[in-house]
Structures are given as C-alpha cells and as structure tokens.
Simulated scan of single mutants.
Amino acid sequence: MKATIERFYAAFAQLDGDAMQACYAEDASFDDEAFSLRGRAQVGGMWRMLCGATRAKGADVWRLEVRDITDRSAHWEAHYRFSTTGRMVHNIIEADIQCGPDGLIRIHRDSFDFWRWSRQALGTPGLLLGWTPFLRAKVRTTAAANLQKFLTASPG
C-alpha cells in the first residue's frame, strides 16, 4: 500500500530503523545485491544496522531522495558515506514492494547497479572486480556476517 511505502521512506529519511522495521510483516522477505533476508527481525535488523552506521559515521552527508511511489514500487537515491571505507556513495535504486492485506510489507526487492555502487563504495577494488561474481559474493558474505553480529548484540 502506498501509505506504508511512504511511511517507510519517511522513516528512512530520518534514519529511524525501528520505524522502518515496523512497516514489515513478520514473514517479510528482502533481497538486494548485498542481502537476502527472511522475517521482520532480519529485515528490520538490517535497516537498524545501516541507519545506525550512517548516524555514527555519516549523518552529516546523509540524504535520501524518493520519487514515483506507487502501491508496489518506488525510485530512491541515497547519498551517504560508506561506513567501511569512508567513501561517498550515490546509489540509485528501484524498489519493488508488495504489501499484504494488513498493509505491511511482505516482499521487498531493491535493484541497483552493483558495479557502479562498488566503484564508489570500494574504490579501486570495486572498479577492477565489481563486475565479478567473486566481489559480489565477498560483499554478501561480509554483509551477512555484519548483520549476524549486529543482531546478536541488539536483537529486536
């Protein structure tokens, strides 16, 4: 539902991971180039982790632009400092979102150009290897480990 998607991105603009998590159904799924998550705890944990990292190391440059919100999709662009490297990123994302009858997000898929992102976030390694399955797998493995560590330290 459009109202849920609008509420989700309004919370994201404020880096409010708890409010973002509240937009998801218990059995929600989320997939993008870095994560494949199942359940509100994992999905919401990812957003809480990313929002916390941005507040800690990049709130001064954080900016979210959202447009073309419908009942099933949104276009969003995030301007942020990648916490691992400190490099500036402008990521352009297309979101495909399906809500259940209760109005909560059940399926969320974000698509973006991984090579473009990796060149910005990782610099030379991203430029040289961002198109390879090797780097994509490394990013996914590191992201999953970071999320597991975050969820263990701050379940919710």
Rank of each mutant, 00 (worst) to 15 (best):
V139F: 09
F114N: 01
D96W: 08
R106F: 07
S83K: 03
A143P: 04
A143K: 08
M49K: 07
L127P: 00
D102T: 09
A53F: 06
N91L: 11
Q14P: 00
D68V: 05
V61G: 06
L50C: 14
C51G: 10
E94V: 05
T124E: 09
A13T: 11
A153L: 10
R116V: 03
E94R: 12
G126V: 05
E26N: 13
Q148Y: 03
T142R: 10
L104T: 01
D113P: 04
E6H: 09
A53D: 13
A137E: 14
D96P: 00
I5V: 15
F8D: 03
D113I: 00
K149D: 14
Q120Y: 15
D68W: 06
A145D: 15
A95G: 09
L151I: 12
T54L: 08
D113H: 11
A121S: 09
N146G: 13
S111F: 05
A41W: 01
R136N: 07
F8E: 06
E26P: 13
A22G: 03
T142W: 06
A34R: 08
A153M: 14
W76D: 01
Q42M: 11
R81W: 09
A121G: 01
T84E: 15
T124G: 03
Q148S: 13
A74S: 15
G58P: 00
C23E: 13
R136W: 12
F112N: 08
H108I: 04
I93H: 02
S118P: 01
G126E: 08
G100A: 08
A144M: 06
D27M: 09
P101Y: 15
T124F: 11
E94Y: 09
L64P: 11
A11V: 04
C99M: 05
T4Q: 07
I97N: 07
G58V: 12
D102Q: 10
L15H: 10
F8M: 11
E6Y: 04
G126R: 04
C23Q: 12
I5W: 10
V61Q: 15
E33Y: 01
G100L: 08
T142N: 14
Q148M: 07
A53K: 11
Y80M: 13
F150Q: 01
L104S: 11
Y80D: 04
F150N: 05
G39Q: 12
S73C: 02
R67D: 15
R119F: 03
R109Y: 05
A13I: 10
L50D: 05
C51Y: 12
W131T: 02
I97Q: 12
Q14Y: 01
Y80K: 05
D31Q: 14
C23Y: 07
Q14H: 13
M1R: 01
A78R: 02
A3W: 01
Q98Y: 09
T141R: 14
